[in-house]
Nucleic acid binder design. Structure first.
Length: 574
RNA sequence: GCCUCUGUAGCUCAGUGGACAGAGCACCGGUCUUCUAAACCGUUGGUCGCAGGUUCGAGUCCUGCCAGGGGCGCCA
């Protein structure tokens, strides 16, 4: 289906050009002024502020608007185009056209509003990317939900999408995890060993150790920590994948940072940066202050390998290879993104927490130092997530302490267990990534009308209920004549047509949360109509009933599409 | 100190430089013998943190200030 505002924009541009050619308007480059839906229904369905042309055309906005309208060709979907002060051009969509959209929506089904903006293009979304040293936490969950929704939106926009999970199993944390499991294993065997305080204390390692005993007995007593690290890692990944699958998230590719070392890619990248003149050896960076230099001297550092990132706007240069010969985190990160770009993605979205802000900047500088264009890379930064609950005494929300104690909300599994997969997905998505998210545990747990999740799903459920009842009564919509639809139903179709724009805007601006808000708005349009526009009611004439049944089929298609875009289920019953 | 995000109704939050700033929750009052009342109808609620500036037009852009979150290591 076409995006009506885009069609109207094109028609307006043609009209302006026509007016310029006839001399009614002076010649100027036509700026892109977006057509949008006005707030009030009385102002039509699509609106164009011609005031934006006043300066260029050196005429009164109202006159300009009238000139443009006078030069417009007829549009198949518009019944009325009016000019309103101070210079708006308002377009009303024809009822006849709206009625046609009912069948058009049903025909498109689950591909409703699939756009062609990504046609023939490939996109990648990298998200979650938690190292396999523990379960998926609440913080990871936000990235998971936002990333997967972004992937679904890119698919809806026509892109071929790959979901990637980048991880590092070679760091000190993983060593600690392996050793933690080793000690837990020995404890299971009855050995008197203590777990150091900075080791992984989680109960899941006790369970893992018990399983190892059940499987291998005491045969691993003298096995190396590497053996345990491998066991812990595979167990963690199983857990992580299971947790993500519980909210309908599945990655296509798992990319191990270690492979960048094995293939030598990180050194190739460093060589290229050096050839391009952005690398130098020194004990301290070139712009270091006196106190920094003396600090470094005091520590007795040997020369390290520095990236002159300040050439690209960084505030200080960054170490690529430490004086002990080991790369910092930054070098493989640059190599990874370089590899990503070489794999030919037109868009590479990366969902990160804001704690990675500086790191992501340096990676972009690194990409430019390689002589590559970082433009396809776009990072969505999520602000922090807190689980909060209402404190009655103090009359305010307060953070839930995230501990391992039962009853606290620490992991994705906990959240799902306390609420539902759908609730987790909706609440994590329905917030701008720029704002800190307070996950109100009490509200999400409530399965009541306070919870927008059910409000939206109930719209689909109500449609499904009608279809069930109709089938039982042997009633169908064959031969339905949509002229029997009323204002209410058309109002819904009008709103539903905005979905295409919502998808487009969400993709262009990398703002998947917009879909969540739209879903709620659409449900708010639906429910009152459901109450008024009954289908299987003794007083509803049969022609009207058929038309309405057809209408609810379209509504169900729209809600199903929306719920799936958010990764939520579309239940037939609740 | 520098960077960055946030500040909008009692609470949680939307809001492409456009028209009279919106939802949900909470509060108050109504609505089920007819497809799910997890719904609907009605009422209440605002100095868009503060001060300037740009603009025909600013919650939105710019500058400064105030308050809060996060980030700034030869850590991973």
């Amino acid at each position: 289906m076409k995006l009506l505002n885009r069609v109207l924009e094109a028609a307006l541009e043609d009209a302006i050009q026509a007016a310029q050619e006839s001399g009614e308007l002076p010649s100027f480059a036509i700026p892109r002024i977006p057509v949008s839906a006005p707030k009030r229904a009385s102002q039509g369905d699509l609106s164009y502020p011609a005031m934006g042309l006043a300066k260029l055309a050196r005429k009164r906005p109202l006159d300009i608007a009238n000139l443009i309208v006078g030069n417009m060709q007829e549009l198949d979907f518009a019944c009325e185009i009016k000019v309103a002060p101070p210079g708006f051009i308002n377009c009303t969509i024809a009822d006849e056209f709206l009625k046609q959209q009912v069948d058009a929506m049903i025909d498109e089904g689950d591909a409703l509003f699939r756009l062609d903006m990504g046609c023939g293009k490939r996109a990648q979304v990298e998200f979650v990317s938690a190292n396999p040293s523990g379960p998926i936490t609440i913080g990871h969950t936000r990235g998971a939900v936002v990333g997967d929704a972004m992937a679904r939106l890119l698919e809806a926009a026509g892109y071929e999408v790959q979901r990637e999970y980048y991880y590092n199993n070679a760091g000190a944390q993983m060593v600690k995890l392996g050793k933690s499991l080793m000690l837990r294993y020995r404890q299971q065997l009855g050995d008197d060993v203590q777990l150091p305080a900075d080791y992984y204390q989680g109960e899941y390692l006790i369970d893992a150790a018990a399983d190892l005993v059940a499987e291998h007995g005491d045969s691993l007593r003298s096995a190396s920590w590497e053996r345990f690290k491998g066991a812990a890692e595979s167990r963690m990944f199983d857990w992580i994948k299971r947790s993500l699958a519980s909210i309908d998230i599945k990655h296509d590719a798992f990319y191990n940072e270690t492979s960048l070392f094995d293939s030598g890619k990180i050194w190739d990248v460093l060589d290229t940066m050096r050839e391009n003149g952005h690398i130098y050896q020194a004990t301290h960076w070139e712009g270091a202050r006196e106190d920094e230099i003396s600090d470094v001297t005091a520590k007795g550092y040997q020369p390290a390998t520095w990236f002159r990132s300040t050439s690209f706007g960084d505030e200080k240069d960054r170490v690529m290879v430490k004086s002990d010969g080991k790369p910092t985190y930054t070098l493989p990160d640059i190599a990874y993104h370089c590899d990503k770009l070489k794999r030919g993605f037109d868009i590479a979205v990366n969902v990160l927490g804001t704690d990675h802000f500086s790191q992501a900047q340096v990676v972009k500088y690194g990409i430019r130092a390689l002589g590559m264009d970082p433009d396809p890379i776009h990072v969505i930064f999520n602000q922090m997530v807190r689980a909060v609950r209402w404190n009655e005494e103090r009359g305010e929300h307060e953070a839930v302490k995230q501990s391992k104690r039962a009853g606290d909300f620490d992991t994705l599994d906990d959240l799902v267990a306390m609420t539902s997969a759908d609730a987790v997905r909706y609440h994590m998505l329905a917030r701008s990534p720029n704002s800190q998210l307070d996950f109100d545990v009490d509200q999400v747990v409530k399965q009541s009308n306070e919870n927008p999740v059910y409000y939206i799903q109930n719209a689909y459920v109500r449609c499904a209920g009608i279809f069930r009842e109709a089938e039982e009564r042997g009633f169908d919509d064959a031969g339905a004549d949509l002229k029997h639809l009323g204002e209410d139903e058309l109002k819904f179709i009008r709103k539903a047509l905005e979905l295409g724009n919502v998808i487009e805007q969400a993709v262009i601006n990398y703002e998947p949360h917009k879909v969540a808000f739209f879903a709620h708005e659409l449900a708010a349009v639906f429910h009152p109509i459901y109450d008024r526009a009954r289908v299987l009611h003794s007083e509803v004439p049969i022609d009207t009933a058929k038309a309405r049944l057809r209408f609810y089929r379209a509504a169900a298609v729209v809600f199903r599409r929306l719920l799936r875009l958010m990764g939520m289920s579309a239940p037939e019953r609740m």
